[in-house]
């Protein structure tokens, strides 16, 4: 089956608050699906519904073709999950915490513990009590619990929280390898587009409980806006000459001109030639590309555009 995770009009209402509204998405096998949204957008509620922790007010979620509900416990054999900040039993060591998960997963091979400890670089902490772990190592332990059974599907809620840049890179590479080499399907939430776009194959943007856009990361560059910024000493002459040549330009807040026209952005030298011929050579000619965070904020309506 191609569709591994699927939701159909999934909604969750808490009193007056509609936390998730009519969410319909699907994640294909081997895909890394980045689930992006601001804090409180509905990411964690969606993830908890996918994991059977919260009952949807309406709609359904399906994983591997089976409907998700609390009693469908056989389903969790192939799923590894991490929800928000992972907490472990504080009085138990890293090894004991993993041993508990191993038992609850009916896995008899204790070698799995050592393998996942090595994979998550927790070897020097194996006998340290969970309450004495740093936030980053507690996060690694949470990931170890999610990965101990070599799951076919991973559902991770902000898994790089608390990790340092090296840790973030390491986890990113690990997830990439799992998806590319082992065909693991990964559903991962984040509020940082720049971070998630580096390894997700597809991104879904959620805002105020609604899925407002789904996009392949390969298409992201095309969706980010570009503009040509120009400036000259004689601004009036620039404006008249470019308008006469059929370009549409507007003034930015700092007194420069911007051209959003694709033809202008792709051929800034043509604009420069026109300006020189009009007797107002450019003092500034710069193609500026919208970054991913700006694109994300613009998509959810927080930042209208680059101006």
């Amino acid at each position: 089956m191609d569709e591994i995770i699927r939701t159909e009009n999934l909604s969750k209402q808490y009193g007056e608050l509609l936390a998730v509204s009519d969410m319909s998405l699907n994640v294909r096998k081997g895909e890394i699906y980045g689930f992006l949204g601001l804090n409180g957008a509905g990411k964690t509620t969606t993830i908890r519904m996918l994991l059977g922790m919260i009952r949807p007010t309406s709609g359904s979620a399906f994983i591997d073709g089976k409907r998700v509900f609390a009693d469908n416990h056989e389903l969790w054999k192939i799923i590894g999950s991490l929800v928000e900040i992972p907490y472990s039993y504080p009085n138990l060591t890293v090894y004991e915490n993993l041993e508990i998960i191993l038992r609850l997963r009916f896995i008899s091979d204790k070698g799995s513990i050592n393998r996942v400890i090595d994979k998550l670089k927790l070897s020097s902490y194996r006998n340290i009590k969970a309450r004495n772990l740093s936030l980053g190592n507690a996060q690694r332990l949470g990931l170890a619990k999610a990965l101990i059974h070599n799951p076919e599907i991973l559902i991770l809620d902000e898994p790089t929280n608390g990790l340092d840049p090296a840790g973030i890179y390491e986890i990113r590479e690990l997830l990439k390898v799992m998806a590319e080499k082992l065909g693991v399907t990964i559903f991962i939430s984040s509020h940082i587009l720049g971070e998630i776009s580096r390894f997700a194959t597809r991104i879904g943007i959620i805002h105020e409980g609604r899925l407002i856009q789904e996009v392949d990361t390969s298409q992201l560059d095309k969706l980010c806006r570009k503009r040509l910024l120009i400036d000259a000493r004689d601004k009036q002459a620039v404006y008249s000459s470019l308008m006469q040549s059929g370009y549409s330009l507007s003034e930015t807040k700092d007194g420069r001109f911007e051209l959003l026209d694709e033809k202008a952005v792709r051929n800034p030298e043509v604009i420069a030639t026109l300006m020189v011929h009009a007797g107002c050579p450019p003092t500034l000619l710069h193609v500026e590309e919208e970054d991913l965070e700006s694109y994300f904020l613009r998509t959810i309506g927080i930042k209208e555009d680059l101006r």
Binding site: Y89, R105, G142
Partner: peptide, 15 residues
Amino acid sequence: SDRTLKDILALPVTR
């Protein structure tokens, strides 16, 4: 209080 409940809900054992 230890906030460990969520880690034992999505497991193959019955609640």
